[in-house]
Simulated assay, not measured.
Amino acid sequence: MTRAAFPPWTRAEVIGATSPEFARFQDEPAQMKSGAVGKTGFLRLGLEHRSGRTVLAKLERRAPYMVQRALYCDEEMPALASVFLITTTGCMLQGDRLALDVTLGPRAQAHITSQSATKVHAMEANYAAQSQTITVAEDAYLEFLPDPVIPHRHSRYLSDTQIFVAPSATLLLSEIVQPGRKHHHPDECFGATILSMSTSGARPDGRILFAEKLVIEPQRYAMRQTGVMDSFDVFANVILCAPKDKAERIHARAAADLDRAGGLAFGACHLPNDAGLVFKVLGRETAQVKAKVREFWAVVREEVVGASLPPPYLWR
Results as ranks from 00 to 15, higher is better:
R24A: 15
F25V: 01
D27R: 06
D27T: 12
D27G: 10
P29M: 14
P29E: 08
A30K: 11
A30G: 05
M32I: 08
M32D: 10
M32T: 13
K33W: 15
G35C: 10
G35H: 00
G35P: 04
A36E: 15
A36H: 09
A36P: 12
G38D: 08
G38Q: 09
K39I: 12
K39C: 10
G41F: 00
G41V: 00
F42M: 09
F42Y: 15
F42V: 11
F42P: 00
L43V: 08
L43N: 00
G46D: 00
G46L: 01
G46N: 04
E48W: 03
E48Q: 12
H49Q: 14
R50E: 14
R50F: 04
R50G: 04
S51K: 07
R53E: 06
T54W: 00
T54G: 00
V55Q: 03
V55G: 02
L56E: 03
A57Q: 13
A57T: 04
A57E: 11
K58G: 08
K58S: 12
L59Q: 07
L59C: 03
L59A: 02
E60M: 10
E60N: 05
E60A: 13
E60P: 09
E60L: 14
R61Y: 15
R61Q: 13
R62Y: 09
R62Q: 14
R62T: 07
A63S: 14
A63Q: 12
A63D: 14
P64E: 12
Y65H: 08
Y65F: 13
M66V: 06
M66E: 11
V67E: 11
V67S: 11
Q68E: 12
Q68H: 15
Q68L: 12
Q68G: 04
A70F: 00
L71Y: 13
Y72S: 07
Y72R: 05
E76V: 11
M77K: 14
P78K: 09
P78C: 09
A79M: 15
A79Y: 11
L80N: 02
L80Y: 02
A81M: 03
S82L: 08
S82N: 13
L85C: 04
L85R: 01
I86E: 04
I86F: 09
T87G: 06
G90S: 09
M92N: 06
L93P: 09
Q94Y: 06
G95I: 01
G95V: 01
G95P: 03
D96E: 09
D96P: 06
D96I: 04
L98M: 10
L98Y: 15
L98H: 03
A99F: 04
L100S: 08
L100A: 02
T103M: 07
T103V: 12
T103S: 05
T103Y: 05
T103N: 08
L104S: 01
G105E: 09
G105F: 04
G105Y: 05
P106C: 07
R107F: 15
R107H: 15
A108C: 04
A108S: 12
A108I: 01
Q109V: 02
Q109E: 14
Q109W: 04
A110H: 05
A110N: 03
H111A: 11
T113V: 10
T113S: 12
Q115S: 07
S116D: 11
A117W: 06
